[in-house]
Structure formats: C-alpha cells, structure tokens
Nucleic acid binder design. Sequence first.
DNA 1: CCCTAGCGGTGCT
DNA 2: AGCACCGCTAGGG
Length: 170
Amino acid sequence: MKPDSAALLCHVPIATSEGKFVASFSSRGLCSLKFPSRVGAKRTLQDPLRLPAKVRSWQAIARRALQRALAGRAPGRLPPLDLSAGTEFQRQVWQALRRIGPGKTRSYSELARAIGHPKAVRAVGGACGANPVPVLVPCHRVLATNEALGGFSAGLNWKRALLRCEGIRL
DNA sequence: CCCTAGCGGTGCT
DNA sequence: AGCACCGCTAGGG
C-alpha cells in the first residue's frame, strides 16, 4: 500500500563543487534531488529566511551529505527521506539501493534477487531510473551483469563521474 | 560480436 | 483491459 502524499514545502538550491543541485522537501523530508541543469539557470529565488526552520536544517544536512558523497566518501547523516511517492516495488528497490556502500556495486539482477523478485530485472532498472533522490540513494552503483555501465536517467556522464569519484574504474 | 526471446512493473489509453 | 515502453539477461548464431 502506498501512503498518502505529503505536502510539498519548497525547492532549495544546494551548492556543490559540481554545481547547483536543487532539493525539494515535503513535510516529511527530502523528496527529490535534481542534478545541476545547464539550461536551467532558473532562479530558485527563495528567501532563506522565509523557509521553515525544519527545512533549513534539512537543507544543511543534505548539503553536507551531498558534498561528502560527491567527494567519494560516505555521506554520513542524511535528512529524513520522503520516498512515499513511489510504488511499493519502487520503494523496495530504493531501500535496497541504500544498502550498497560507497565504492561497491551490484548488478540489476542481484538487486532483483535481493528484494525477492528475481525475474523483475528490467523492472528494477525502471525503478532505479525513477529514483527521486540520486546520489544519496545511490542508483549509480547498479551496473549490468557483464560489467557494462547500464543506463542512467541523468546521463551516463554523471554515472561515470559518480562511480569514478568512489574509485570504481571500468 | 550481434540478435532474439522472455521477463515484470509502470503509465498510458 | 490492452499495450508499448524500458537503466536487463541468458542463450544462440
């Protein structure tokens, strides 16, 4: 069963060495993280002082976690994640993703087996692609069985970069 | 190498 | 209900 959705609070920028990510928060926590968009240039003009205190705190935690993750280290403490927008199956996959440590990888089929749907291999790929919080929920650590890169919704360049900064070579 | 069939979840109509 | 996608895979030229 899918929990009912929580109200969206706001979108806030998160500055990193790789550019400005955009985090979205619901009343329950971080519900989406977007990679820097070149064409975006879009103004997230949000007066930080008008953000709910809770969100400011989550933003700060998320920023530290993201910076560490992008440096190839363990992210440390995370803000609460609101993954309630996903289906039951997707949430199982995302949960399994979180158990892959930095510098480690799994194949789509290993993940499928891990969640008890051994044949739902392509569907696992679909769920990875639907991951609303990339990097912190490390969908980039999933590769094809033949050690091929597989896909990445934000572009394979990002996937390569993320793996590389964790010391994974291909 | 390339091709193909089979696979299961999701989102459209 | 049907159908067409897919971040896939194993098996066979």
